[in-house]
Design a protein around this nucleic acid. Sequence first.
DNA 1: ATGGTTGGCTTCCAA
Length: 253
Amino acid sequence: MKIATWNINSLRVRLPHVLRWLESQRPDVLALQETKLPDPDFPAEEFTRLGYHAAFSGQPAYNGVALLARAPLTVEATALPDFDDAQKRVLFAHLDEVHILNLYVPNGQSLDSDKYQYKLRWLEQLNRWLTQLLREHPQLVVLGDLNIAPEDRDVHDPKAWEGGVLVSSAERAAFRSLLEQGLQDSFRLFHQEGGHYSWWDYRAAAFRRNLGLRIDHILLSPALAGRCLGTHMDREPRGWERPSDHVPVITML
DNA sequence: ATGGTTGGCTTCCAA
């Protein structure tokens, strides 16, 4: 089973990339973040044509998540439980036995921002929910743009990033809490070295110079981690015309 | 070199 996640930074702009990528990679599941589309505008029929079922939860201009899958999807939630949030960042669904939680974690903007406090509260509530999800669903995938580089080896220049969002100790502690509950970082099951990133800033030719961060992740419950065959980033679409600033992360189960 | 680029209910905000 091939499962992927990709922050596409506007599905309106990136639809040709998503269709091209689906045709060449044929994943069983593709989770999208930052669709930036209200639900009535979601181009579901474009994916139906390629044999994909679609589930989506979006809003105008910001945020928005979607799941595309070759098997029928059953949506179970579109928000964190008991958390008042107008922003569409969560899509929880299952296909057959496998449950997938697609997340677009808040960016946080800067450590002194209200948005950073919102991010930390959001992650705290996610951790609370995860306890229940792991108990109820042995085959659980948690994936998406988690907007956290878990360790210094996930950052091209840890000194330059010190004091910023995506790398702060509170965010990293929240990420570790996910792992302490039993999830495994599928990429780190296979690769130990630094230099592998999923996002590069559009500015300063960051991709060409590999000035990136590993902030998009596929986390697996113990049962799924035990049968995982590999996880990698596909850098190819970052070289296409008008690319997203993120690339797909792919795991094989 | 405290910059730079992209997308969107665009003349600013979010990333």
